[in-house]
């Protein structure tokens, strides 16, 4: 770990100010579950670490007229305990699937959304694009855990956030503050992620000095159902091979609106319009769910060694759809 300054602001404004310095070569520390490991591996080497956990306004879940404002510091434990978040089943399921109380106590939603890729080339110091001598290491190397969608560009890692698919399926937005003192923007979460085209790009739209302060969720209606299906090789702490989250609006057994989002299959969370459009105005059956799964991966372009992930992603979508309407049976 390289040395850095440390600061612990009390307010959002103070945090933004602290993050601007050093040309923005600063890092936001929340639960530490990703950042401290990155620091130890020298993958992130900021000149200042800003611990935002003292900022009251970034904690807690509040109901407003338009929906919920969820502080970025909301931990997985908070997600599990919050009566306001309880109806957002697909979110709660993700928090519950983190089978480690240490992560549940520390990990925050904001941190999860900004979790850097678990790509082993990235984690071994080859950068997000894993380029060496102008060549992609992923393309010809061991890409068993890499992208099967959206991988035609230089980025072939998969987005590591476990909550993003569910949040995007709910149409969540993120409130971003900084880098200028008063600057605030609210962006649909699906536009938050980018697939970097060059080595100096990150995997989100966050500019140096910016951070997520809140996540916005629309108000839930009785007709809304949702589910997340994560395919985890291990029961214990592990990260998914593929994830699917669906949010449906079901009236009289007919799906009126649908969003289907896949995770861990592309450099960004993957919104599948193909899958969603198949669901609309239909009654969910096993056959339909199958077709939805197939549609979600119909444009998959697996790499040399990850064809199997297409099957897994397809299954995840199918099962998430069935799970949302309470029809899922079986599966490990």
């Amino acid at each position: 770990m390289k040395n850095f300054e440390f600061a612990s602001p009390q307010t959002e404004a103070e945090a933004v100010g602290l993050l601007q310095d050093h040309g923005g070569r600063t890092a936001v520390l929340a639960g530490g579950t990703d950042l401290v490991g990155l620091l130890q591996a020298d993958l992130v080497a900021p000149e200042r670490v800003v611990d935002v956990r003292q900022i009251q306004s970034m904690s807690g879940v509040r109901r407003e007229a338009d929906g919920l404002w969820v502080g970025a510091l909301t931990t997985l434990d908070d997600v599990l305990a919050s009566p306001l978040l309880k109806p957002y089943l697909s979110l709660v399921q993700v928090a519950d699937a983190h089978h480690a109380i240490q992560i549940q106590s520390s990990g925050t939603l904001g941190g999860d959304l900004c979790h850097l890729p678990n790509c082993w080339y990235y984690r071994n110091g080859y950068g997000l694009l894993a380029m060496k001598d102008g060549e992609s290491l992923v393309e010809t190397g061991d890409n068993r855990y890499h992208a099967i969608l959206g991988n035609s560009g230089p980025a072939k890692f998969v987005n590591a956030s476990r909550f993003a698919p569910a949040l995007i399926a709910w149409g969540a937005k993120v409130r971003i503050i900084g880098p200028a003192p008063e600057q605030v923007e609210v962006v649909p979460l699906e536009y938050f992620y980018i697939s970097p085209k060059s080595a100096n790009q990150g995997n989100t739209i966050l500019k140096p000095g910016q951070l997520i302060s809140h996540i916005w969720l629309p108000a839930i209606e009785p007709t809304h159902v949702s589910a997340t299906y994560e395919v985890l090789q291990m029961e214990g702490l592990d990260w998914p091979l593929a994830t699917a989250s669906v949010t449906l609006d079901v009236e009289g057994g007919i799906v009126r609106a649908a969003r289907v989002v896949l995770g861990h299959v592309a450099p960004t969370p993957w919104v599948s319009q193909e899958a969603a459009s198949l669901l609309r105005n239909q009654m969910v059956t096993e056959d339909l769910a199958n077709a939805v799964g197939a549609a979600a991966v119909s444009k998959a372009t697996p790499l040399s060694n990850n064809e199997y992930k297409v099957q897994i992603a397809k299954t995840a979508v199918k099962r998430a759809v069935l799970k949302a309407v309470g029809q899922l049976e079986g599966g490990l």
């Binding site: 089978h99 678990n118 082993w120 080339y121 984690r123 071994n124 080859y126 060496k132 290491l137 010809t140 190397g141 061991d142 855990y145 090789q233 291990m234 029961e235 214990g236 702490l237 592990d238 990260w239």
Partner: peptide, 25 residues
């Protein structure tokens, strides 16, 4: 052990990607 053919490195030499069972497995 996953040896990456391209770099020749032991690419999963960490407890994140070197997968071991846990109490539920």
């Amino acid at each position: 052990r996953v040896m990456d053919k391209k770099t020749g490195r032991y690419i999963n030499a960490d407890l994140q990607n070197y997968k071991l069972p846990r109490i539920g497995d």
